[in-house]
């Protein structure tokens, strides 16, 4: 509930408008979190924003966030320099059900900045690689220069993750795939009868992806999605992030798609 000061230790530019920030507590305890959780992050004086944690849950107590600078608060956060202090509340929210996926194939489907909340899950899955069947990452971005963690994708592939990347648009120098993420689902190799999927990206992308997964026999009870709504308090009090009978900050952001489906069908929500 009470913000804690965290100092910016290092900063890495991922794309033209997206940075990965490594923070460490200033005096207080290290922040423990589960993959999929978020914090309320703030550069003082510009307001708080919910930002998913993108670091390694088995890491050394550093808090890692990947932030896209698109508004006042996120631009101020991304403009912070090493040594600057940011305020952090959290971690909050229901995480990815990483342990429940044991024994089967796992599809990790990410769109755009949605790869950031999935990165802790990928690292957790790879750290326990033997527990899972085939691990497949399907990742879509707007263009090749807007792909996140480009340097890590190869490393993840070497550790046993099947990586397929697609972009919406590219020049002829791009030798990879051009097209939308749902079309990657159709081409992916996995055990349809024994697979689950974790999704994060623009809601419309997730909707089409869920439809493609359903065609492959993966129903809503085996699909988990991280939702984005107007989260403000982070602890289920203010009600701004209500989605149907749930509050995304408290009951999400990760839901089984089956829990959400009927509420997402109501456009006003």
């Amino acid at each position: 509930m009470v913000p804690a000061p965290f100092a910016l230790r290092s900063k890495r530019q991922e794309t033209a408008d997206t940075w990965t920030l490594e923070l460490e507590p200033r005096g207080g305890p290290a922040l423990e979190f589960a993959p999929g959780q978020f914090t309320m992050l703030s550069a003082f004086g510009t307001g708080e924003v919910p930002i998913s944690i993108s670091g390694d849950p088995d890491g050394e107590g550093r808090l890692v966030h990947t932030v896209r600078a698109v508004g006042l608060a996120t631009k101020a956060i991304c403009a912070a320099a090493p040594g600057d202090v940011l305020s952090v509340r959290g971690p909050f929210g229901r995480p990815w059900p990483v342990d429940d996926l044991t024994g089967g194939d796992v599809l990790i489907v990410a769109g755009g900045i949605g790869l950031a909340p999935l990165r802790p899950a990928i690292l957790a899955l790879l750290a326990r690689r033997a527990r899972y069947g085939r691990l497949v990452l399907l990742y879509g971005g707007r263009s090749p220069d807007q792909l996140l963690f480009a340097g890590e994708l190869t490393e993840w592939a070497d550790r046993g993750l099947d990586v397929a990347v697609t972009v919406d648009s590219a020049g002829p120098e791009w030798l990879g795939t051009v097209g939308v993420v749902p079309r990657l689902v159709r081409r992916a190799q996995f055990d349809h009868a024994n697979a689950s999927a974790v999704l994060c990206g623009p809601e419309v992308m997730m909707r089409f992806t869920v439809a493609a997964l359903a065609q492959g026999g993966i129903g809503g009870d085996r699909v988990f999605a991280s939702m984005e709504r107007n989260m403000q308090c982070g602890i289920g009090h203010c009600g701004h992030c209500q989605l149907g009978p749930t509050l995304v900050c408290r009951d999400g952001p990760v839901y089984a798609w089956g829990e959400l489906e009927r509420w997402l069908a109501i456009r006003e929500l």
Partner: peptide
């Protein structure tokens, strides 16, 4: 779906 440019900038804080 490609035409929607779903990864374009959304109005966020």
């Amino acid at each position: 779906l490609q035409l929607l440019d779903v990864y374009g900038h959304a109005p966020t804080p």
